[in-house]
């Protein structure tokens, strides 16, 4: 037997959330969901949590366990206890709690609905099935298996800072159509996704890739859409910033804050953010104006070529 700590909150009765401890059988092979079922069936039937398939495919049972979100049905309890010395189960983050471990996912679904999550047929719909090169179909692989469990949104630092940001699951869904040969609205999609709260608002923290229980790579999907948007010539503050950033690195191997800010924000934009500049000056953290190229510039160039070649291979197959 070992102790599990569970987040409890019933807004109808409780003023504020609390944690409750239960002693449960945590022998090897038992999942976090097994433990919650033990509690619900044998000790406290009021404990609420969503679950269904118990085989990591329906996406019902995502929770925040020992600091990371994942599916409780496929999380082995003992290794977590052994690693951290405790086991704490909480509801997902970035979504309001409705009862115990059940969160309100309306905001999650709203974001998904916002990206037009359905195929928009192009002009030439064949009589039979589409003929799509395998390599093109494989482009969808990093996103197509998303089970919409919400784990990525729970960990998303950009969503935490900006509740209007669409978030990783919605954007992975967006990519799944933007990269689909059969979709006829790619340009319109990329333009829409390039607007505020879209692909350029990801702060690339990588948590979404890391926690996804079925190895969807939302951040990779977002990055690919950035490339696609730049290639399509869709200008946005984000794309301008990325291009400026790339240029300055290729020049000196260093970030030139002045030229980058000028290119991505413009003079007016820079004036709008002058408070940041003031703060920088007051703290005496003024960057050098002329950047001397770093010693390993040759390697920087090699790296850039390598990345470029890899990208071409992927998109032109």
């Amino acid at each position: 037997m070992a102790t599990i700590k569970v987040y409890r909150f019933d807004p109808e009765q409780d003023e504020k959330p609390r944690y409750e401890e239960f002693d449960v059988d945590m022998s090897p092979g038992r999942t976090v969901l097994n433990l919650l079922h033990d509690i619900h069936y044998n000790e406290d039937p009021t404990l609420s949590f969503r679950r269904s398939c118990q085989s990591a495919i329906c996406g019902s049972c995502a929770m925040h366990v020992n600091g990371r979100t994942g599916l409780s049905c496929s999380m082995q309890a003992k290794p977590l206890l052994d690693r951290d010395g405790y086991l704490v189960v909480e509801p997902m983050k970035n979504m309001p709690v409705l009862k115990d471990l059940v969160v309100d996912m309306d905001g999650f679904w709203d974001s998904v609905h916002e990206v037009d999550p359905f195929l928009q047929a192009g002009r030439d719909v064949p009589k039979g099935a589409y003929v799509v090169p395998k390599a093109k179909m494989d482009l969808l692989k990093i996103a197509q298996d998303c089970i919409m469990c919400g784990s990525c949104l729970s960990e998303c630092t950009s969503r935490e800072a900006n509740p209007d940001y669409l978030g990783p699951a919605a954007l992975a869904k967006a990519y799944r159509f933007a990269a689909d040969e059969r979709d006829g609205a790619t340009m319109g999609r990329l333009m829409a996704y390039s607007e505020a709260n879209g692909i350029w608002d990801c702060d690339t923290c990588l948590y979404c890739n890391e926690v996804c229980p079925i190895h969807v790579k939302p951040m990779d999907a977002i990055m690919r859409m950035r490339e696609m948007a730049i290639e399509a010539g869709i200008e946005s503050q984000g794309s301008k910033h990325a291009i400026a950033f790339y240029d300055t690195i290729l020049k000196s191997g260093k970030l030139n804050e002045f030229t980058t800010a000028n290119k991505s924000l413009g003079i007016r934009g820079m004036l709008r953010t002058s408070d940041v500049a003031t703060k920088v000056i007051l703290r005496w953290k003024i960057p050098e104006v002329r950047k001397k190229p770093i010693e390993g510039m040759k390697d920087v160039e090699k790296l850039a070529k390598l990345v470029e070649r890899k990208r071409r291979r992927r998109t032109q197959r």
């Binding site: 359905f118 195929l119 047929a121 719909v125 039979g128 099935a129 589409y130 003929v131 799509v132 090169p133 395998k134 093109k136 179909m137 969808l140 197509q144 799944r176 159509f177 689909d180 059969r182 979709d183």
Partner: peptide, 20 residues
């Protein structure tokens, strides 16, 4: 039915020639 689901977007696996 399979063709319709393909037209609606189901990412069916393809062979080397791009067919289902």
């Amino acid at each position: 039915a399979v063709v319709e689901m393909d037209h609606l977007g189901t990412p069916f696996s393809r062979d080397e020639t791009g067919k289902l």
